[in-house]
Amino acid sequence: MQEAMASGDLKKAIARAKRGHADAFQQIVEAFKDRLFAFVWRIVRDHHEAEDICQQAFVKAFESLRSYSEKYAFSTWLFTIAYRMSLNSLRKRKALSGEVDFSRMGDGGDDAGQTLANSEEARRLRTCIWEAVAQLSTPQKSAVLLFYREGKSCDEIGRVLGMPAVTVKSHLHRARNRLRERLRTELVDDRMVLEFLGEVHLA
């Protein structure tokens, strides 16, 4: 996935923000806020919580900007901060309720405004996919989101999740297996979707 900001502009903005220019950091916030929110929201599945985490992540990023090394993509660094905050938030939630409330994680794709596909079959398939993604463990889900949505390599995902690339690969592998099994179970009786998939494939 391409940066919302041209690479050169981003470098300049980071350099200025490092010198304390708040207006430069505002450009960075504008460029990354939607992507970061989409990622965090998929992990915590709560709008206000996700927004709070994103806000804290940006503030933390600004305050720690001097420690950012341009050897790595800025988005990787930013997502690392947000991922750790998301994990903390999930842990707090788990500590309060005994366990993570997965019931809040269902029905991720019921947005009438989605533009991916508008047919009934496509909507059902999308809903099934997001439900299956929501059932993954947090590292698996994060790996899937960073891999497919952010286009990160296993090395970069490893930096975000704080684990070796080989572990990321393992998480991705297990995530795909779980998705495959779940989707197959969900869709086995859904002839409409299966036919849709068949048509997609033949097309």
């Binding site: 929110f37 998929r42 994103c54 794709g109 947005d111 996919i129 949505r149 998939l197």
Partner: peptide
Amino acid sequence: VMMESVGSVVASDRPVAAL
């Protein structure tokens, strides 16, 4: 096709909630 759909849905779906 299912697995390729997972990739495309996750990659391009807009988040349900907005900032």
